Computed example of a mutant assay.
Amino acid sequence: MLTHPAPTAHIRHRPGGVIVGVGARAGAAAGEVLALVRAVLAEAGSCPGDVVALATVDAKGREPGIVAAAGALGVPLVTYGAGLLATVPVPRPSERVRAAAGTPSVAEAAALAGGGELLVPKRVSVGAGGAPGRVTCAVARAG
């Protein structure tokens, strides 16, 4: 499991709390974001009530599907600059993501940027016909 020691003041930590890192293509629907968040939380042995924040890269901080998902979960949406996320060690860096977002990871790095331990690495939503969807999520125990 990966850990990152840089806690942020934007996230209220509590025992058992988790941070869900989210990446998404433009226009991803809130339903797709929430479905994947719920799936990765179940995989982590957590529930929506354990989430202390959704986290993403600054460039996605106004993406309607991500903003709506944070609102539906009743948690803050925390954003980080691509430069900061690029410094967070992750198990699945992607050159495609680096080219698009300026960091080799959005979901995993955003989950870990607040400090903590990676519980579920990046997962991708399922799109039409079983093709990869438009959303990625990862879950970390809040540091």
Rank of each mutant, 00 (worst) to 15 (best):
D58M: 02
T103F: 12
T56P: 00
G115R: 06
I66G: 08
G81N: 05
G65T: 07
V51E: 02
A138K: 14
G114Y: 02
L73E: 09
E95Q: 11
A42G: 01
P5R: 14
P48S: 09
A110Q: 12
A138P: 12
G130S: 14
G65Q: 04
H13E: 10
R92N: 15
L84D: 07
R14G: 08
D50T: 07
A111Q: 08
P15I: 11
G130C: 10
T79C: 11
V126G: 02
A111T: 08
V37Q: 06
G133F: 02
H10N: 09
A53I: 05
T56L: 00
V97N: 06
L84R: 13
H13L: 07
A44P: 02
C47W: 03
V52P: 00
G127V: 01
R25M: 07
T79Q: 01
A138D: 15
A70M: 13
P132N: 10
P7E: 03
A69Y: 10
P91G: 11
P64I: 03
A26Y: 02
V20T: 08
G130Y: 08
A86L: 03
K122M: 07
A131N: 10
A30C: 15
A28G: 10
P76R: 04
A42C: 00
G116P: 00
A101L: 12
G143H: 10
A140R: 08
G49A: 10
V88M: 09
V124E: 00
K60V: 01
T79E: 03
I11R: 14
A59N: 00
A109G: 15
T56S: 13
L85Y: 02
G102W: 06
P132T: 09
A128N: 02
V120D: 05
R141F: 13
P64L: 04
G31K: 12
P76T: 08
A35N: 09
L54W: 01
G116Y: 06
V67P: 06
E117R: 15
